[in-house]
Design a protein around this nucleic acid. Sequence first.
DNA 1: GACGCAAGTAAACGATTGTTGACAAAGATC
DNA 2: GATCTTTGTCAACAATCGTTTACTTGCGTC
Lengths: 218, 218
Amino acid sequence: MSSKTTMSPQPSDIPADADEELIRSGRDAALTRRALVRAARRRFATDGYRATTVRTIASDVGVNVALINRYFVSKEGLFEACMSSTSDELDTQAARPSKSIDEVIERLVEHVVNAPDRDDPLQLLLLLRSSGDENADLIRRRTLEHFTRRLAAAAGWSSDDPDSAAILLRAQLAIATSLGVVMLRTSAAVEPVASASADELAEPLTRVLRALLAPTER
Amino acid sequence: MSSKTTMSPQPSDIPADADEELIRSGRDAALTRRALVRAARRRFATDGYRATTVRTIASDVGVNVALINRYFVSKEGLFEACMSSTSDELDTQAARPSKSIDEVIERLVEHVVNAPDRDDPLQLLLLLRSSGDENADLIRRRTLEHFTRRLAAAAGWSSDDPDSAAILLRAQLAIATSLGVVMLRTSAAVEPVASASADELAEPLTRVLRALLAPTER
DNA sequence: GACGCAAGTAAACGATTGTTGACAAAGATC
DNA sequence: GATCTTTGTCAACAATCGTTTACTTGCGTC
């Protein structure tokens, strides 16, 4: 085996278009733009930035490679578009403010354990992927730090709290846990977490997040 | 900017040889072999498999590229060597059996929060890196699953426990948390976890791991 | 001290990848 | 219905990367 340098571009067999019919029937620039971002986000999240080729993304959408450079200037530009797209969706979904801490935790858990055919875990997974490009990685870092503050605020943190630093750190540990679980479950496919049901996984994960985010016990 | 396709090979500036003088003075095959594995493990862990070039690794050691193919057949072979090396070290360090759960947790925490100049966190980080090669990724998955069982056993699990499945899952969540923290701290450099001191980080991390691994409360 | 083998180097090949500029087709505008 | 703009395609270029082959250098052996 491996008589050639070539490496199969991951036989992950992602369908060309997922849920929500982005069927790209006619010639609609905005639609194909969105379809490209969606396909790229999937590939980047599952295979990583470097392992993903622009030809693969274009092929997923059913479009010529050159369109990526036309719409996003470069591969890095496409990655940045994926990042800000994910950042927006996280703000309006997983990290949207709420009055109850338990509600925030519940929403985060749901994002993590979601069925693999949904895109939610991939949004989180993308936050772990480095592109090597300074701009894109700066956006990634800012998104994670913004996410941290949102989570800390949802856990009842206020900026004049004397323990604000410790609370921020605990919120980030909660994010780290979530990202680690998604990584092992989606990308590494490690047992038993990979094939654990949503309920089996939600229970201990909720316990951990509560231990980190719930108002100070002890 | 970005007038060229080229991307700077991550300005991480890893010194050619780290601690423990692997100074490669004379012509010693075994020594350069070890130096190559060490340098490769660093690069693979921090930059990822695809982003790491064999030329960079060889340059880190101060040796010609062709030696990699001579000693390890291929880049994938070098990656596999890194994997089994890390697997061995984890067995004899972070996951070595102990009579006290707290001692196991303490050792795992130390591996995670260790000063960035030590190699310990990188060993964990490598377990998250996919190569795209089937053999290497199989080794990676087996290492993680083996690590899970070791941790579960250290937490007082026995195979005839009726809750063995749940305990295995919790042990893997503990690993996921550790990996997530190392990722955010070492690779993504997200604040505040990136610049948190070892003590600041050890306290909440220990609490989480205890919540997952400590004998069943409630 | 010549010989032989192991350790290391140099240079090139083949394949892939991101990018680009010229060209073709489909809609809108008048 | 002719024309112009937008949307998409085709083909090629330049660079990089993993790998290989032939060559050189150093060390031990008889």
